[in-house]
Simulated assay, not measured.
Amino acid sequence: MDVLGEVLAATGFKGVLLAQLRARGSGWGCGLERLGTAGFHLIAEGTCWLRVAEQPPRQLVSGDVALLPQGEPHHLAGSPEQAAVPYAELEAAHPVGRDGILDLGGHGPVARIVCGKFDYDHDASQHPVLSALPAVIHVPGMSADPELQGIIRLLALESTRERPGSRAVAARLTDVLFVQVIRAWLDTADTDPQSAPQSWLTALRDPRIGAALSLMHEAPQRPWTVESLARDVAMSRPAFARQFKQLVGVSPLAYLSRVRITLASRLLRDTNRLVSDIGEAVGYTSEFTFSRAFAREHGLPPGRYRREALAQPAGT
């Protein structure tokens, strides 16, 4: 079971290419407000500096990717100390061209930055993947594995093409880019455990706890207990419960509840099935139990959640 892929699919996760910045020299700065969604910057050419509150400036060079999972406010600039102008003001002064590039002008070496975001059905603080990640993930292009380097090069190329379907290709590549960046981040857990705090994502690396996570995602409707999960991964109940909580950060049954409610949310949004049928499909024995668990997670009952989701305009 591909747990990461299942979670991303269940939350309607998809990449969106926004625009590109092109600037010359070091006398430029672009300020971006909180996105309300995860965002990323891929340095297609040249260098720039990324500044996020309470963190030292980071130099980004060609081939690097910076992912901001919670969409923190940040600055991109030609030098660490350069003042930043809000993006909206820059866009008003330098309208985006037909090629999708916001050209800031200037003199000197060129920096080109591909900017995108990820849409999904939760806010970043609640998303089961994004909430498990640090505020900034910086993947240096030179240290990335060949697969990620290939995605970076192809995305940088497709973002400048004006061939039919280029933007659609670039958007799909952003989905792949996200997964590859997460893989690269997880690999840092071997050398720097502090960069990868406890979460279900890092727990995927553990053979037995990762197997238990896969079982819950593969068959959330089963009447799982701590005992049955421990038995299926060949562990004693106490050892399994202790190790699961240590690695994932919550108990096995608390995690199972999240899996069920995330799946139920997708079924409520994307199907016409009865609320009672959806509750049964994800493992609840009664509509009352399902509604209570759903409201505990989302703050509103399933029927109201469906009505509000359907009332939202497409693409929001």
Rank of each mutant, 00 (worst) to 15 (best):
L102S: 00
L268I: 14
H41A: 07
G141P: 02
Q198T: 12
T37K: 14
R34F: 07
R266N: 14
A44H: 07
A314P: 02
D270N: 06
S166L: 03
E227M: 15
A144D: 08
E6N: 11
E91K: 10
E91C: 10
E147F: 09
R51L: 09
V136E: 03
A93W: 01
G29C: 04
S228Q: 15
L253V: 09
E81V: 13
G12R: 07
V96P: 01
A171S: 08
L154F: 14
P57I: 07
R237A: 13
A66P: 01
V248A: 13
L263I: 11
S236P: 05
K245H: 08
A83E: 00
A124R: 05
L186D: 04
G299R: 11
D232G: 08
G5W: 10
D192F: 11
H107C: 06
W200E: 06
A88Y: 12
R208M: 15
Q55M: 09
R58F: 10
T289G: 05
V52N: 02
A219D: 15
S286P: 12
V169D: 05
A92W: 10
L4F: 08
W28H: 08
A44F: 04
R237W: 08
V16I: 14
G39I: 00
L35D: 12
A311N: 10
Y255V: 09
I151T: 14
T262E: 12
W224L: 09
K14I: 03
E297A: 14
A92V: 01
L274M: 07
F240P: 00
V169P: 06
E89T: 07
S199G: 05
E158K: 01
